[in-house]
Simulated assay, not measured.
Amino acid sequence: MDKKRILYVEDDETLAFLTADNLENHFEVVHSNNGKEAFDLFCKDNFDLCVLDIMLPDMDGFEIATEIRKRNQEIPIIFLSAKTMKEDRIRGLKLGADDYLIKPYSIEELILKIEIFLNRSQKSVEKTIKTYQFGSFEFEPENYQLKNSEKDITLTEREAALLQLFLDNPNTVLKREKILNALWGTDDYFMGRSLDVFISRLRKIIKEETNVRIENIPRVGFKLVVE
Protein backbone atom coordinates (compact mmCIF):
# COMPACT_ATOMS: atom_id res chain seq x y z
CA MET A 1 0.00 0.00 0.00
CA ASP A 2 1.31 3.46 -0.89
CA LYS A 3 2.22 5.65 2.04
CA LYS A 4 0.04 8.68 2.71
CA ARG A 5 1.69 11.99 1.81
CA ILE A 6 2.14 14.57 4.53
CA LEU A 7 3.01 18.23 4.00
CA TYR A 8 5.08 19.14 7.06
CA VAL A 9 5.94 22.81 7.59
CA GLU A 10 8.43 23.73 10.34
CA ASP A 11 11.28 26.25 10.33
CA ASP A 12 13.07 24.99 13.45
CA GLU A 13 15.80 22.88 11.84
CA THR A 14 16.43 20.51 14.76
CA LEU A 15 12.76 19.92 15.55
CA ALA A 16 11.96 19.48 11.87
CA PHE A 17 14.69 16.86 11.46
CA LEU A 18 13.56 14.84 14.50
CA THR A 19 9.86 15.03 13.64
CA ALA A 20 10.27 14.27 9.93
CA ASP A 21 12.63 11.39 10.71
CA ASN A 22 9.97 9.75 12.89
CA LEU A 23 7.08 10.50 10.54
CA GLU A 24 8.94 8.98 7.60
CA ASN A 25 8.70 5.58 9.28
CA HIS A 26 4.96 5.76 8.64
CA PHE A 27 4.28 8.29 5.90
CA GLU A 28 5.80 9.99 2.89
CA VAL A 29 6.86 13.40 4.20
CA VAL A 30 7.44 16.56 2.20
CA HIS A 31 9.08 19.15 4.45
CA SER A 32 9.25 22.90 3.99
CA ASN A 33 10.69 25.56 6.32
CA ASN A 34 8.99 28.50 4.60
CA GLY A 35 5.30 29.38 4.61
CA LYS A 36 5.02 30.65 1.06
CA GLU A 37 7.07 27.76 -0.31
CA ALA A 38 4.85 25.33 1.59
CA PHE A 39 1.67 26.80 0.14
CA ASP A 40 3.17 26.68 -3.35
CA LEU A 41 3.94 22.99 -2.78
CA PHE A 42 0.35 22.39 -1.68
CA CYS A 43 -1.00 24.03 -4.83
CA LYS A 44 1.29 22.06 -7.15
CA ASP A 45 1.11 18.62 -5.55
CA ASN A 46 -1.31 16.23 -3.85
CA PHE A 47 -1.23 15.65 -0.11
CA ASP A 48 -3.35 13.63 2.29
CA LEU A 49 -2.75 15.76 5.40
CA CYS A 50 -0.97 18.98 6.43
CA VAL A 51 1.05 19.52 9.62
CA LEU A 52 1.70 23.23 10.07
CA ASP A 53 3.81 25.27 12.44
CA ILE A 54 2.35 28.73 13.01
CA MET A 55 5.37 31.04 13.28
CA LEU A 56 6.92 30.80 9.81
CA PRO A 57 8.77 33.14 7.45
CA ASP A 58 6.87 34.83 4.58
CA MET A 59 3.49 33.28 5.42
CA ASP A 60 2.39 32.00 8.81
CA GLY A 61 0.49 28.81 9.52
CA PHE A 62 -2.82 30.59 9.99
CA GLU A 63 -2.48 32.18 6.57
CA ILE A 64 -1.55 28.86 4.97
CA ALA A 65 -4.57 27.16 6.53
CA THR A 66 -6.88 29.95 5.37
CA GLU A 67 -5.69 29.57 1.78
CA ILE A 68 -5.81 25.78 1.92
CA ARG A 69 -9.41 25.84 3.11
CA LYS A 70 -10.37 28.07 0.17
CA ARG A 71 -9.22 25.27 -2.12
CA ASN A 72 -9.85 22.13 -0.12
CA GLN A 73 -12.42 21.75 2.65
CA GLU A 74 -11.66 18.12 3.40
CA ILE A 75 -7.90 17.67 3.85
CA PRO A 76 -6.99 17.31 7.56
CA ILE A 77 -4.85 20.08 9.06
CA ILE A 78 -2.92 19.81 12.33
CA PHE A 79 -1.26 22.83 13.90
CA LEU A 80 1.94 22.47 15.93
CA SER A 81 2.79 25.58 17.92
CA ALA A 82 4.53 27.05 20.92
CA LYS A 83 1.67 29.56 21.10
CA THR A 84 -0.23 28.37 24.17
CA MET A 85 -2.88 31.09 24.40
CA LYS A 86 -6.43 29.78 24.28
CA GLU A 87 -7.24 32.46 21.71
CA ASP A 88 -4.63 31.04 19.32
CA ARG A 89 -6.02 27.52 19.64
CA ILE A 90 -9.54 28.78 19.05
CA ARG A 91 -8.41 30.78 16.04
CA GLY A 92 -6.68 27.75 14.56
CA LEU A 93 -9.74 25.55 14.99
CA LYS A 94 -12.04 28.22 13.58
CA LEU A 95 -9.86 28.38 10.49
CA GLY A 96 -10.72 24.74 9.90
CA ALA A 97 -7.86 22.89 11.61
CA ASP A 98 -8.64 19.41 12.88
CA ASP A 99 -6.31 19.66 15.88
CA TYR A 100 -3.80 21.94 17.59
CA LEU A 101 -0.84 20.43 19.48
CA ILE A 102 1.31 22.50 21.82
CA LYS A 103 5.10 22.25 21.66
CA PRO A 104 6.85 20.30 23.01
CA TYR A 105 4.59 17.52 21.78
CA SER A 106 4.88 13.75 21.86
CA ILE A 107 5.87 12.21 18.53
CA GLU A 108 3.73 9.18 19.40
CA GLU A 109 0.72 11.43 19.98
CA LEU A 110 1.31 13.27 16.71
CA ILE A 111 1.53 10.02 14.75
CA LEU A 112 -1.64 8.75 16.43
CA LYS A 113 -3.48 11.98 15.57
CA ILE A 114 -2.32 11.80 11.96
CA GLU A 115 -3.47 8.19 11.64
CA ILE A 116 -6.87 9.01 13.16
CA PHE A 117 -7.49 11.92 10.80
CA LEU A 118 -6.23 10.03 7.75
CA ASN A 119 -8.53 7.14 8.56
CA ARG A 120 -11.47 9.49 9.05
CA SER A 121 -10.66 11.28 5.81
CA GLN A 122 -10.45 7.98 3.92
CA LYS A 123 -13.84 6.90 5.22
CA SER A 124 -15.28 10.23 4.10
CA VAL A 125 -13.89 9.71 0.61
CA GLU A 126 -15.25 6.15 0.47
CA LYS A 127 -18.68 7.32 1.50
CA THR A 128 -19.57 8.60 -1.92
CA ILE A 129 -23.14 9.03 -2.99
CA LYS A 130 -24.40 5.90 -4.69
CA THR A 131 -25.90 6.59 -8.08
CA TYR A 132 -27.88 4.53 -10.56
CA GLN A 133 -27.98 5.01 -14.32
CA PHE A 134 -31.01 3.81 -16.27
CA GLY A 135 -32.28 5.05 -19.58
CA SER A 136 -31.43 8.75 -19.71
CA PHE A 137 -31.80 9.11 -15.94
CA GLU A 138 -29.34 9.38 -13.08
CA PHE A 139 -30.74 8.55 -9.65
CA GLU A 140 -29.22 9.47 -6.26
CA PRO A 141 -31.30 7.61 -3.66
CA GLU A 142 -29.66 9.29 -0.66
CA ASN A 143 -30.68 12.70 -2.00
CA TYR A 144 -33.97 11.52 -3.53
CA GLN A 145 -32.79 13.09 -6.80
CA LEU A 146 -33.82 11.79 -10.22
CA LYS A 147 -32.59 13.76 -13.18
CA ASN A 148 -31.72 13.81 -16.84
CA SER A 149 -31.19 16.59 -19.36
CA GLU A 150 -34.89 17.46 -19.28
CA LYS A 151 -35.90 16.93 -15.66
CA ASP A 152 -34.55 17.38 -12.15
CA ILE A 153 -37.02 15.83 -9.74
CA THR A 154 -36.93 15.44 -5.97
CA LEU A 155 -38.81 12.26 -5.11
CA THR A 156 -40.53 11.57 -1.83
CA GLU A 157 -38.78 9.21 0.57
CA ARG A 158 -41.12 6.35 -0.33
CA GLU A 159 -40.82 6.99 -4.07
CA ALA A 160 -37.03 6.97 -3.80
CA ALA A 161 -37.06 3.76 -1.75
CA LEU A 162 -39.39 2.10 -4.27
CA LEU A 163 -37.29 3.14 -7.25
CA GLN A 164 -34.11 1.95 -5.55
CA LEU A 165 -35.72 -1.41 -4.82
CA PHE A 166 -36.61 -1.77 -8.50
CA LEU A 167 -33.12 -0.71 -9.64
CA ASP A 168 -31.51 -3.18 -7.27
CA ASN A 169 -33.64 -5.88 -8.92
CA PRO A 170 -33.91 -4.96 -12.61
CA ASN A 171 -35.87 -7.25 -14.94
CA THR A 172 -37.00 -9.23 -11.91
CA VAL A 173 -40.56 -9.81 -10.75
CA LEU A 174 -41.05 -8.36 -7.28
CA LYS A 175 -44.04 -9.67 -5.39
CA ARG A 176 -46.36 -7.08 -3.89
CA GLU A 177 -45.77 -8.54 -0.44
CA LYS A 178 -42.00 -8.13 -0.77
CA ILE A 179 -42.30 -4.51 -1.88
CA LEU A 180 -44.78 -3.64 0.87
CA ASN A 181 -42.69 -5.22 3.59
CA ALA A 182 -39.54 -3.54 2.29
CA LEU A 183 -41.13 -0.07 2.23
CA TRP A 184 -43.68 -0.16 5.06
CA GLY A 185 -42.91 -3.27 7.08
CA THR A 186 -46.41 -4.59 6.43
CA ASP A 187 -48.45 -5.86 3.48
CA ASP A 188 -51.94 -4.80 4.57
CA TYR A 189 -54.61 -3.54 2.17
CA PHE A 190 -54.21 0.17 2.80
CA MET A 191 -50.47 0.10 2.20
CA GLY A 192 -51.21 -1.81 -1.00
CA ARG A 193 -53.33 1.09 -2.22
CA SER A 194 -50.49 3.49 -1.41
CA LEU A 195 -48.08 1.32 -3.37
CA ASP A 196 -50.31 1.56 -6.43
CA VAL A 197 -50.21 5.37 -6.15
CA PHE A 198 -46.39 5.40 -5.98
CA ILE A 199 -46.14 3.01 -8.93
CA SER A 200 -48.40 5.33 -10.92
CA ARG A 201 -46.23 8.35 -10.06
CA LEU A 202 -43.02 6.63 -11.10
CA ARG A 203 -44.61 5.51 -14.37
CA LYS A 204 -45.54 9.10 -15.19
CA ILE A 205 -42.01 10.27 -14.50
CA ILE A 206 -40.36 7.69 -16.76
CA LYS A 207 -43.14 7.43 -19.37
CA GLU A 208 -40.99 9.01 -22.10
CA GLU A 209 -38.24 6.42 -21.65
CA THR A 210 -38.58 3.90 -24.48
CA ASN A 211 -36.29 1.31 -22.91
CA VAL A 212 -37.52 1.50 -19.32
CA ARG A 213 -40.95 0.64 -17.97
CA ILE A 214 -42.69 -0.77 -14.91
CA GLU A 215 -44.79 -3.78 -15.85
CA ASN A 216 -47.73 -5.03 -13.85
CA ILE A 217 -47.64 -8.79 -13.26
CA PRO A 218 -51.29 -9.70 -12.54
CA ARG A 219 -51.95 -11.14 -9.07
CA VAL A 220 -48.18 -11.24 -8.41
CA GLY A 221 -46.45 -7.87 -8.42
CA PHE A 222 -44.34 -5.63 -10.63
CA LYS A 223 -41.20 -5.72 -12.74
CA LEU A 224 -38.90 -2.90 -13.77
CA VAL A 225 -37.93 -3.70 -17.35
CA VAL A 226 -34.64 -2.14 -18.48
CA GLU A 227 -33.74 -2.98 -22.06
Rank of each mutant, 00 (worst) to 15 (best):
K113V: 03
D58Q: 13
E208I: 07
L202Y: 03
F117C: 02
D168F: 00
F139N: 03
R120A: 02
T172H: 07
N171Q: 08
N119S: 07
S106K: 13
R176C: 05
S200V: 02
L49P: 01
N34P: 02
I129M: 11
D48P: 01
T128L: 09
V212S: 10
Q164H: 00
R213F: 04
M55A: 12
R219N: 08
T84I: 05
E227H: 10
M1F: 03
L183V: 08
F139C: 06
V197R: 15
F198C: 01
L56H: 02
K127F: 14
S121Y: 14
W184N: 06
L23C: 00
C43K: 15
I111M: 07
E115V: 04
F47T: 05
V226G: 00
S124G: 06
R193Y: 01
M85Q: 15
D88C: 10
D21A: 13
E28Q: 10
M55D: 06
K44L: 09
L101C: 05
A182N: 12
N211M: 09
L146D: 05
P218G: 05
F117D: 01
E10R: 06
N148K: 10
A161H: 11
G185S: 07
T156H: 09
I107T: 09
K94M: 13
S106P: 02
M1P: 01
V173W: 02
E140D: 03
D168S: 11
S121V: 05
K3W: 00
N181D: 10
E157I: 15
H26K: 06
F79G: 02
V226L: 15
N72H: 07
Q122M: 12
Y189D: 07
A161W: 01
N25G: 01
D53N: 08
I153E: 08
R120S: 03
E208D: 09
D40F: 05
A97G: 03
V226N: 09
R5L: 04
L167F: 04
F79N: 08
L224H: 01
L101Y: 12
Y105L: 13
P218T: 14
R219C: 02
V173H: 09
E108M: 11
D40L: 15
F222T: 10
G35F: 03
G135C: 04
L183F: 08
Y132W: 11
L146H: 12
D2G: 05
G135K: 13
T14E: 10
A65K: 08
F27G: 02
E150G: 07
G185V: 11
K86W: 02
T154Y: 11
E157A: 11
C43F: 01
D196R: 15
N25L: 12
I179K: 06
L202S: 06
E140C: 02
A182I: 05
V225T: 10
A65W: 04
N25M: 09
E13A: 13
E13Q: 14
E13S: 10
L110W: 06
L101Q: 10
E28W: 04
A82C: 08
S124P: 00
F198N: 09
